[in-house]
Design a protein around this nucleic acid. Structure first.
Length: 605
RNA sequence: GGGGUUGUAGCGCAAUUGGUUAGAGCAUCGCCCUGUCACGGCGAAGGCUGCGGGUUCGAGUCCCGUCAAUCCCGCCA
């Protein structure tokens, strides 16, 4: 790579002993400067690395005088001769540590104010780093994460290109639809009172591309959802979105496996086993209490309802009477390590996810049980319990008795917490799996109707079709999620391509023909002109990069992320707009705060 | 919408049961320094303790509210 320009002939991580004697030019930022009164050392930094500059006041008094005023993060262009450092002054921790550049020219390209915080201090607060994101990039690991993201994107593009996928962009100004997340709305000036919505996903467009005969589509799609945020959720995020025609789940899963294997191979030099293991949703819930189980460790949940059919323990009998069940988790050899305090934390977790409580039992050396509810468990039940769980002295048993979903999910969360506490998780492992056969519909108490678990275009499993009218809750979908280390990385489905079935689906969702026409008319019409069978999937790129970067939050892999209240600390968005702008859009604000904000706003048109 | 944590100098922190004038380090500014690499030495300046109430003779410290950041629940097809 040639860097030659008036600013530089090399970058700052390039020069070594082989360049000694050469005249070179470098540009970059002052990482630090050390003025010893006589000798002056400056560490010059660019994207690639750091080179030490050297000025001897005896040979270059003017340069030394100029260098005296130089401060951190000033921008310099320099020229000089590469020379070896004295033997004992070699800095072996730096690639360019064997040499230094003795300056003959020094140009100050730009000065810099004192930094608002110490750029290399990892403990500096995140809001400052967000406010000065452009400074954060200079020295924290952020730039490395952006490079990693670029590399991952490149591999994904290559694999999809090699497999005949065509990258197509779809509109950002899109149409609001019910179902799913809250939309970000964009008011229309030309059509006052009407709004675009920013896409939650390019779902409908990509299906229309299939109707259009594209057959294999992909896109790095920016998606927008106006919901409350988390460490792994931003209001706008990127999906690797893909869709294929004339396929069944197998073909979609196959290409995604190829894609993810290539990424991991390229980034981590690890060959992950392919194809990925597959679990049905029901199995995942039963065994691991999660629809995105972390399989880096075993710890399977067990159904122990059978043992307690005639239990005298009210917590157990009540759950069973109400049609629930009793699930247990056995932690080998953890009885000693788990103090009362730790067990209380587990209990709190179980409660947080809806369980009424958590029963813990310690298996003593003599195989007797001790713990919160041991006295309510008969000797016969104790014997059966130990036998079913194959428990040994020193084991810890955690039990939740509740409705099926609550019991599974709450104990599933305890399972994760326990694994972390007991150090069962190998942080270097990359563990992919598929979860399939999700339910198609879910009863929503709030709206008193069925809602689509995935989205309303998801096809039911062929063998469950006949249940759609009679037992909608039991219909499984041709949907699949790819899970990495307990994180939902992506999901997709085979879509409904026949208008009759789509109409039936809308009916199940309580969407009238009229509504369907109004909201989805264009896609229904498109399907009436010969839609091919099709399906696809979307991968959360931010989450993928986060996991491979070992980052704790997707903010660390996004150049300019927003806070948990969806504001940008750097640009101060969102912000008020001028009355003139509102007027053009035919909008007026209701709140007084809104009005006063407008008056404060200085933007003029 | 709900719960937890945090908020003291530009930055990261300290300040005893509520008790004099809120401290030292880094950064900044000034002076000194010829082999540093987080250079070092001497000195100076720097504060509405997030904001608003309250309790008290007295509040950085206790109470209530509020704002912001963050983590989680709900929510996120």
């Amino acid at each position: 790579m040639s860097y030659s320009s008036k600013y530089r002939t090399h970058h700052c991580n390039e020069l070594g002993s082989e360049h000694i004697g050469q005249n070179v030019r470098l540009s970059g930022w002052v990482n630090s400067s050390r003025n010893l009164g006589g000798l002056v050392f400056i560490d010059l930094r660019d994207r690639e690395g750091i080179t030490q500059l050297f000025i001897d006041p005896e040979t270059s008094p003017q340069l030394a005088a100029k260098a005296r005023e130089i401060r951190e993060e000033w921008v310099l262009a320099v020229a000089g001769t590469v020379r070896p450092r004295p033997q004992e002054m070699v800095n072996s921790s730096r690639k360019t540590g064997a040499i230094e550049l003795e300056l003959s020219e020094l140009e100050i390209l730009n000065r810099a104010k004192a930094m608002p915080y110490h750029l290399e201090d990892p403990s500096s607060s995140e809001d400052l780093r967000l406010k000065y994101r452009y400074l954060d990039m200079r020295r924290s690991g952020l730039l490395e994460n952006l490079k990693l993201r670029h590399k991952i994107s490149k591999v994904i593009r290559e694999v999809l290109d090699e497999n005949g996928f065509i990258e197509v962009e779809t509109p950002i100004l899109s149409k609001s639809t019910p179902e799913g997340a809250r939309d970000y709305l964009v008011p229309s000036r030309v059509h006052q009172g009407s709004f675009y919505a920013l896409p939650q996903a390019p779902q409908q467009y990509k299906q229309l591309l299939m109707v259009g005969g594209v057959e294999k589509y992909f896109q790095f799609a920016r998606c927008f959802r106006d919901e409350d945020l988390r460490a792994d959720r931003q209001p706008e995020f990127t999906q690797v979105d893909l869709e294929m025609s004339f396929v069944e789940p197998e073909q979609v899963m196959d290409i995604v496996e190829q894609l993810l294997c290539a990424v991991v191979k390229n980034i981590k030099q690890i060959n992950v086993p392919c194809p990925f293991p597959r679990l049905s949703w029901k199995e995942a819930m039963h065994k691991y209490g999660s629809d995105k189980p972390d399989l880096r460790f075993a710890l399977e949940l067990q159904d122990i309802s059978g043992i307690f059919k005639h239990s005298q323990f009210k917590a157990f009998s009540a759950a069973l009477e109400q049609g629930g069940l009793i699930k247990a988790l056995k932690a080998e050899g953890q009885a000693q390590k788990c103090s009362r305090k730790v067990l209380d934390q587990f209990t709190e977790t179980a409660r947080l996810y809806g369980a009424k409580g958590l029963v813990w039992l310690k298996v003593e050396a003599d195989m007797s049980l001790s713990g919160s509810a041991a006295k309510f468990i008969s000797p016969e039940e104790q014997r059966e319990l130990l036998e079913q769980l194959q428990a040994r002295g020193g084991d810890l048993i955690l039990i939740v008795a509740d409705a099926w979903k609550t019991a599974c999910e709450s104990l599933g969360r305890v399972r994760l917490q326990l694994a972390e506490f007991a150090g069962l998780i190998n942080q270097n492992e990359i563990n992919f799996l598929w979860v399939q056969e999700f339910p198609l519909l879910d009863w929503d108490e709030e709206s008193q109707r069925f809602v689509a678990v995935h989205h309303p275009f998801t096809s039911p499993l062929d063998e469950d079709l006949q249940l759609l009218q009679s037992k909608p809750a039991e219909v499984r979908a041709k949907a699949y999620d790819v899970v990495l280390n307990g994180v939902e990385l992506g999901g997709g489905s085979i879509r409904i391509h026949r208008p009759e079935l789509q109409a039936q689906m809308f009916k199940s969702l309580g969407i009238s023909d009229q509504e369907a026409k109004l909201l989805f008319g264009h896609i229904l019409e498109a399907f009436s002109y010969g839609a091919p069978p099709h399906g696809g999937l979307a991968i959360g790129l931010d989450r993928l990069v986060m996991l491979l970067a070992g980052a704790k939050s997707i903010r660390e892999v996004i150049a300019f992320p927003k806070t948990t209240k969806a504001s940008c600390l750097m640009s101060n968005s969102p912000s008020a707009v001028s009355p003139a702008q509102l007027e053009e859009l035919g909008l007026s604000l209701e709140t007084e705060e809104g009005l006063s904000d407008q008056i404060l706003d200085t933007k003029s048109h």
